[in-house]
């Protein structure tokens, strides 16, 4: 509410745009700060009609441990996928329907992206009601085990952030 009164309909978007502009201009200088501020305030004002309502992020700092877990998983699981690709045996793949507890569309998007980024699983589709996430797993033995590990590792922290 307060941010909106100062002409910032999307404070998070403004922040992200400002940071990205600093990255693009390779370091923080006077010129990049001024230009970044102009863009970060101007672009949300021009485009705010295209955006659905703001997501409710309760604990943004809880993203950092999740990010570290995901990065660690990407590296570790990449090695296992590499071994699988280089070994001659056929993978045992499966389509697994994952029951979602998350409700927020942004949270579901984040979960689907995380599942896709961690090797061995790709999220293929979400059903129309937003209750099931179809995951293609490259090489699993136990579907229930996969569902449990996704719930423990990724969905729980996301639930904390968005509710």
């Amino acid at each position: 509410m307060t941010a909106e009164r100062f002409g910032l309909p999307q404070p998070w978007l403004t922040f992200a745009l400002f940071v990205v502009w600093q990255f693009l201009s390779d370091g923080v200088t006077g010129a990049s700060v001024v230009m970044g501020l102009i863009l970060a305030i101007g672009i949300p004002l021009i485009t705010h009609r295209f955006w659905p309502e703001n997501p409710r992020i309760c604990r943004p700092w809880a993203l950092i441990p999740l990010l570290l877990v995901v990065l660690y998983d990407i590296v570790v699981a990449s090695v296992s996928v590499t071994i699988l690709i280089l070994s001659p045996r056929q993978p045992r793949s499966a389509f697994v329907a994952y029951p979602l507890t998350l409700k927020d569309p942004l949270a579901i998007t984040l979960l689907a992206s995380t599942v896709s980024l961690t090797p061995g699983t790709v999220s293929a589709d979400v059903n129309d009601e937003g209750t099931l996430l179809l995951i293609h797993a490259l090489d699993v033995d136990d579907d229930a085990e996969l569902i449990r590990s996704i719930e423990q590792r990724y969905e729980k922290p996301l639930l904390e952030i968005f509710q």
């Binding site: 056929q90 045992r92 793949s93 499966a94 389509f95 697994v96 329907a97 689907a112 992206s113 995380t114 599942v115 896709s116 980024l117 790709v122 999220s123 293929a124 589709d125 059903n127 129309d128 179809l134 293609h136 579907d143």
Partner: peptide, 29 residues
């Protein structure tokens, strides 16, 4: 992840066949 998701959706829509021994079913809506 976004392009992988789009490609998977397109493949399920086109009924691209799975290999033998795949458990579960792709759906298309």
């Amino acid at each position: 992840p976004v392009s992988a998701n789009f490609l998977a959706k397109a493949a399920m829509h086109r009924k691209v066949s799975c290999m033998e021994g795949t458990r579960g079913e792709p759906w298309d809506q």
